[in-house]
């Protein structure tokens, strides 16, 4: 028996929805965020519509039932039922979407907040357009000195940073349970510090949570303002350590 196109398309859409939920919730163990699910379902519905309407025969299987429902005299009773049922249905869905809940609203937090083009720290202005790690050149020129600087950075890290960012730099330090949102950064993550220039890290560490830009508010980062506790050298050295330990390379762009 041939399954009508309209039913087939609805089944495909439902199966896709169920499959995604099952995949993420049951197999992968982390539910898919609603905002992403909405986007995926949008594509799936559009895709199914396109696949079914690409040729006349299957298009008719999709449009035909609607046309008959709307215009066929023999469907008067069904039409009336549909017209009576749809408005309350729309009302219920709208109510569900818009009713206030206790959950915090959806927030789009920029993980890499926009740095300013210059900022003040240690009594001077740093130009982010040209700022470079003064110890980076040692890596090639004087490897021993470089290793020394990395080791000093290691000490800085384990004296100050590891309580939150963890002893393996994976963002799971002793205090992590105290921070729900945002969690301390996982430096080993692909796409974290490997995406950034050292100047960005310098700014981010120096100004901490309170120094984050207004555009991305509300920031809830408990990161201390490290320029009040560390020296400029210590910050540069701890940055060397972060890259050295994780194996990431700072982002650079040559001309």
């Amino acid at each position: 028996m041939k399954i009508p196109g309209l039913i087939k398309s609805v089944v495909i859409i439902w199966a896709a929805w169920y499959g995604i939920v099952y995949l993420f919730t049951d197999l992968l163990g982390a539910p898919i965020p609603a905002s992403v699910m909405k986007m995926y379902m949008f594509f799936i519905i559009i895709g199914v519509f396109m696949a079914f309407t690409a040729d006349e025969e299957t298009a008719e299987e999709i449009f035909g039932p609607f046309r008959r429902l709307l215009f066929d005299r023999s469907h008067r009773v069904l039409r009336s039922i549909v017209f009576i049922v749809i408005p309350p249905l729309v009302f219920m869905v709208t109510y569900e979407i818009t009713r206030p809940t206790l959950d915090a609203p959806v927030e789009l937090r920029a993980v890499h907040p926009a740095p300013p083009s210059s900022f003040m720290a240690f009594g001077k202005s740093f130009n982010m357009l040209t700022l470079e790690n003064p110890y980076r050149s040692l890596e090639r020129g004087k490897p021993d000195k470089f290793r020394e600087a990395v080791n000093e950075g290691r000490t800085v890290y384990y004296t100050n940073c590891f309580f939150c960012h963890g002893d393996k730099l994976e963002g799971k330090g002793h205090f992590v349970k105290g921070f729900n949102n945002p969690a301390p950064a996982n430096f080993r993550e692909v796409g974290a510090i490997g995406q950034l220039q050292e100047s960005f890290l310098f700014w981010r560490i120096a100004v901490g949570g309170p120094g984050l830009p207004n555009e991305g508010a509300p920031w809830a980062s408990p990161m201390p303002v490290w320029k009040d506790f560390l020296t400029e050298d210590q910050i540069w050295k701890v940055i060397l350590f972060l890259y050295d330990y994780t194996g990431h390379r700072p982002r650079t762009f040559g001309k």
Binding site: P31, P33, A34, S35, V36, D103, A104, P105, V106, E107, L108, R109, A110, V111, N181
Partner: peptide
């Protein structure tokens, strides 16, 4: 980085 609700 995803647009997320508090519970998410």
């Amino acid at each position: 980085n995803m647009p997320l609700g508090g519970a998410e």
